[in-house]
Amino acid sequence: MSSSKSKSDKRVVYQEFGNDNSAAVERPVQELPANQQNVRVQATRAGKKGKTVTVITGFQSKPETLTALLKQLKTQCGTGGTLKDNVIEIQGDHKQKILEILIKLGYKAKISGG
């Protein structure tokens, strides 16, 4: 027995379909039309070091669609933002403005929280 095995040596007993199964394991994202998506807009400070961010949740879209929407919202609000796990975060409290933009785009959007 050799004790100097490389770290890349994975002890796979049986593996089917090559080396990378990530595409087969991923769940497909069902792209729904904007008028069938129930989107929630909420301003929060939780976990943001006291800074207020507007969080938009409830999307059932592909990442490319959300990236384009994020860019449009950032431009309209004149601020920064990010996309994390199908949740859009816009810096600052822009609940009302974002709600109006989403409704114009055809989303069923509501403000949630206080």
Score class of each variant (00 low, 15 high):
Lys51Gly: 01
Pro63Trp: 01
Val87Cys: 03
Lys110Glu: 14
Lys84Tyr: 13
Ile101Trp: 01
Pro28Leu: 09
Ala46Gln: 11
Lys10Tyr: 09
Ala109Cys: 02
Glu31Pro: 03
Gly18Met: 04
Ile98Pro: 02
Val39Met: 04
Lys84Leu: 08
Gly78Asp: 05
Val87Phe: 01
Leu102Glu: 03
Phe59Cys: 00
Lys108Leu: 01
Glu26Pro: 01
Val39Leu: 02
Ser3Leu: 09
Asp85Leu: 09
Val55Asn: 06
Ile98Thr: 02
Glu26Ile: 06
Ala43Asn: 07
Gly92Cys: 06
Val53Thr: 12
Ser4Arg: 14
Thr52Ser: 10
Glu100Gln: 14
Leu73Met: 13
Thr52His: 08
Gly80His: 06
Ala23Phe: 08
Lys51Ile: 13
Lys51Ser: 09
Leu105Ile: 00
Asp20Gly: 05
Ser22Glu: 10
Ala109Arg: 00
Gly92Ala: 10
Thr75Ile: 10
Ser3Glu: 14
Glu31Met: 07
Ala46Cys: 02
Ala68Trp: 07
Val41Asn: 00
Thr54Asn: 02
Asp9Asn: 11
Gly81Met: 01
Val12Glu: 11
Ala109Lys: 00
Thr79Leu: 01
Asp85Ser: 13
Leu69Ala: 02
Ile111His: 03
Thr67Leu: 10
Gly80Phe: 10
Ala43Glu: 12
Gln37Arg: 05
Val13Cys: 06
Ile90Asp: 01
Gln36Phe: 04
Ala24Pro: 05
Ser4Cys: 13
Gln30Ile: 15
Gly50Trp: 08
Val39Asn: 05
Ile90Met: 02
Met1Ala: 12
Arg40Val: 10
Ile103Glu: 02
Gln15Leu: 14
Val29Ser: 07
